[in-house]
Every structure is written in structure tokens, then in C-alpha cells.
């Protein structure tokens, strides 16, 4: 190495290190599209609004005193029929008990991907 001037080699090596740092930053940016995509797919697949809608409708019907118990059974049948026909989801709503102060309702939801079961007290 006596006569070799190796100054430039160090500059190149430093350049390589900077490039490597940029390389990893680029990897992170690269993943962001993929992450957004898969997150959006998961959100679309999960029937959050469907379950909430069924729950809120059941709650509203249970709270309506003017509808008799026999009529309420018909309304549960409506919801079940509509969900299996229009949204390909099995919904089962059943009054399982209650007293003067509350009503116990079992709600079952299954759209083939997500299953949800709840015993609700309204």
C-alpha cells in the first residue's frame, strides 16, 4: 500500500453506508402501501356495522312497549330472513328470559367468516 492513494476508497465506503441507510428507509416506505391495502381489506371483511345494526335494532324493538311479545318474535324473524337473503349471514335472535325490569336476549351472528354470540340484557 506504500504508493497507493486510498483516500477515494473511504469516500466510496462512506457513500455505501449512506446508501444502505436510504435502502432501509425505502423498504419502510415500500411496505406502507401493502399495509394500507391489507388493513382496508380486513376492515371491509369484518361485519362491524352489521352486528352493531342488529344489536341496536333489537335494543330499540325490546324497548318499544307498544309491541307485544308475539309481534316481537315476528320482528326477529324479519331480521333473520332479511340477513340470510340479502346479506348471506345467519342471524338468530331469541328471547331467553327476563323480568319486569329487563329482557334477556341471545343474539347469534355468523356470516361464514365472523361469528358473534352475545347474551344481551336490555
Amino acid at each position: 500500500m506504500e504508493k497507493l492513494n486510498d483516500e477515494a476508497q473511504w469516500i466510496v465506503l462512506m457513500g455505501f453506508m449512506v446508501a444502505a441507510a436510504f435502502f432501509f428507509l425505502a423498504l419502510v416506505i415500500n411496505q406502507s402501501t401493502l399495509v394500507g391495502q391489507t388493513t382496508a381489506e380486513s376492515v371491509l371483511e369484518f361485519p362491524k356495522e352489521d352486528i352493531r345494526d342488529v344489536k341496536s335494532e333489537v335494543a330499540a324493538v325490546v324497548a318499544t312497549a307498544s309491541i307485544s311479545d308475539a309481534e316481537k318474535e315476528k320482528l326477529w324473524k324479519d331480521i333473520e330472513a332479511l340477513y340470510i337473503a340479502r346479506k348471506n349471514a345467519v342471524v338468530d335472535i331469541e328471547k331467553t328470559g327476563g323480568s319486569a325490569t329487563h329482557t334477556e336476549v341471545k343474539i347469534h351472528f355468523n356470516n361464514g367468516v365472523t361469528t358473534y354470540d352475545e347474551t344481551a340484557y336490555y
Binding site: 500500500m1 497507493l4 476508497q9 466510496v12 457513500g15 455505501f16 436510504f22 425505502a26 416506505i29
Partner: peptide, 29 residues
Amino acid sequence: DSAQLYTIEGFAAAFIILATAYLISGTMS
């Protein structure tokens, strides 16, 4: 051993070129 340094420099330069190419092609979506 002066040739060895030139070889290392060559590798480093090749890596930089590859990394740059990857960076440019990867950030295009």
C-alpha cells in the same frame, strides 16, 4: 495487496448501483 482494495471498491460501487435501482423501482407504486 493494492488490487484487493480496488476489488472492494468495485463491490461497494456495485452495491450502491443495485441499491439505487431497487430504491427507484421500489418506490414506484
